[in-house]
Design a protein around this nucleic acid. Structure first.
Length: 469
RNA sequence: GUGGUCAUGGUAUAAUGGUUAUUACUUCGGCUUGUGGAGCCGAAAAUACGGGUUCAAUUCCCGUUGGCCACCCCA
């Protein structure tokens, strides 16, 4: 505080100002010198980034667990591709004019001058790996799942981050309605298992030719209604007309209602294919909503496209839990043999935010340790405790403890705060006698047992223990 | 990328153009001898950053950064 006054007297010289102008714009202002000297300058989270703290750990672990379980149940194998890839991988697969590539992708030159990008989605990397590792000579289809961080430099908002997590599955190598349905099934069941009832929106956008023909028709139609459209959509007519269909403006909505439907422009093959996909879903009993305006933001999709929403929350923004579709042209586009494929991805942050809002979290995993606390008193007991805790661990009993704390009182408090049902107490006397005290935290009853019988005894109490609080 | 809104200890809050910036929770230590849930005492811990106005700024003004929200886009 006092040093500030001294600093203020310095007027900023004009020379300094010109130097400052050349600096990159986005640098946070440096704190005053006194703070740096006192080591007070804190490093904060980068914009749009989030820590996953122990507080939320259970949600994340549960989600991961379910993802793994579900993917494995349908024969998907885990595959993780790097977070960093050559930038062209994404520009070539997602499409240059898509927002994801155009405005949101983290692209930079690394130290070798290579144009690299942080993955803005999983699919392109999976396809790249499929080609690189010659997976076309594996039994087809190759089914892989992935889970991890995805990066998009968008403006952060509710349910939107720059680093977020996606769980996805890819089925590469074959084209069959059942495969599309299976992907939807995996995602649907993953959500269902977490207690989330999802709505499935589905559509078909046909093959490239169908889409081109349809687009010509659509552009013609939109031009005729141009004056009714919002400013944004007027621009979109030329740049990305399919996206007009997604516009939520009221005036646009009316125009969209009357617009030609893409389904009617599908070729025979695409049409029957789509029908079969729907039949599969009917067969599986998955409810779906045919949504003729669903197009998706990435260029590589063809035929089946779908999105997942939480039931009843479709109108909110940032509400899509995930989506996917077929991408039959992508493998070839990335230099592989012509190979059909399909996949989906779900945004974990959005899934978890629903989970967190839920009252009944019976689906949540539990902490890996028991509700038993180990307290020790005195130097000898301190060392002995270390050993006993380790022995218990080897027998599958994990106890909480704080060996750095000397006072028994303090340790009891900790045990209480951690919600321990039982506390083991080892003092000087017990070390000599080869015994240990088991204290019931609710009743306060204590039992002295032989250390040799401790593990058997504690296993028994854990089984019968009732949760506290 | 556009717009709105906000910024005080780890969390949640109070206050003021002028001494040591309030309170609660949390954390840590203690309230004599080896025992938690109550109480009491104590400690650590904050005005985002930069500039301006002023004798004086945490307070007023501007900028930056960041959070939140909406648009956009999507997961």
């Amino acid at each position: 505080m006092k040093t500030k006054i001294a600093q203020k007297k310095k007027p900023a010289s004009t020379k300094k100002k010109t130097v400052e102008k050349k600096k990159p714009v986005k640098k946070p202002a440096e704190p005053s010198e006194s703070k740096i000297q006192k080591n007070l300058r804190t490093i904060s989270l980068l914009r749009g980034m989030k820590d996953i703290t122990p507080k939320d750990e259970l949600y994340w672990r549960t989600a991961y667990h379910k993802a793994e379980e579900m993917a494995n149940a349908y024969g998907f194998e885990f595959m993780e591709t790097p977070a960093l890839e050559e930038a062209v991988l994404f520009t070539r697969s997602l499409g240059k004019d898509t927002d994801v590539v155009d405005k949101e992708m983290y692209v930079f030159e690394d130290r070798d001058g290579t144009r690299v990008a942080l993955r803005p989605e999983w699919t392109a990397g999976a396809v790249r790996a499929y080609i690189n590792h010659g997976m076309q000579s594996l039994p087809q289809p190759v089914k892989v799942w992935n889970y991890g961080a995805i990066f998009r430099h968008d403006r952060p908002q509710a349910g939107r981050f720059r680093q977020f997590h996606q769980f996805g599955c890819e089925t590469i190598g074959q084209r069959h309605p059942c495969l599309d349905a299976e992907l939807i099934l995996v995602a649907y069941n993953f959500l269902k298992d977490l207690g989330i009832h999802a709505n499935v929106n589905i559509n078909s956008i046909g093959n490239l030719e169908d889409r081109q023909n349809y687009t010509i028709e659509l552009v013609g139609y939109l031009r005729s209604k141009r004056s009714y459209l919002c400013e944004n959509c007027k621009k979109r007519i030329n740049k990305n007309p399919l996206r007009v269909l997604d516009c939520k403006e009221e005036s646009c909505a009316e125009v969209i209602q009357e617009s030609p439907q893409i389904i009617e422009w599908l070729g025979e093959e695409s049409k029957t294919y789509f029908m079969k996909v729907l039949e599969c879903l009917d067969e599986l009993g998955i409810p779906y909503i045919l949504k003729s305006t669903l197009v998706r933001g990435l260029d590589y999709y063809c035929d089946t496209v779908f999105e997942f929403f939480e039931d009843g929350n479709e109108e909110k923004s940032q509400n899509a839990l995930g989506g996917g579709g077929r991408y039959d042209m992508l493998v070839e586009q990335l230099g592989g043999q012509p190979t059909p494929a399909a996949g989906f991805a779900l945004g974990l942050e959005r899934v978890i935010s629903i989970l967190r809002a839920k009252e009944d979290n019976k689906n949540l995993l539990e902490k890996p340790w028991s509700k038993v606390f180990f307290a020790q008193l005195g130097d000898q007991a301190n060392y002995k405790a270390l050993k006993l805790i380790e022995e218990m661990r080897l027998q599958g009993v994990i106890v909480r403890h704080n060996l750095a704390k000397a006072s028994l009182k303090g340790q009891m408090e900790t045990a209480d705060k951690l919600g321990a049902t039982h506390t083991l107490i080892l003092g000087q006397k017990e070390v000599h006698d080869g015994t240990i005290i088991i204290r019931d935290m609710d009743s306060g009853n204590q039992e002295i047992v032989d250390q040799n019988k401790l593990i058997a005894e504690i296993k028994k109490t854990i089984k019968t223990a009732k949760p506290r609080k």
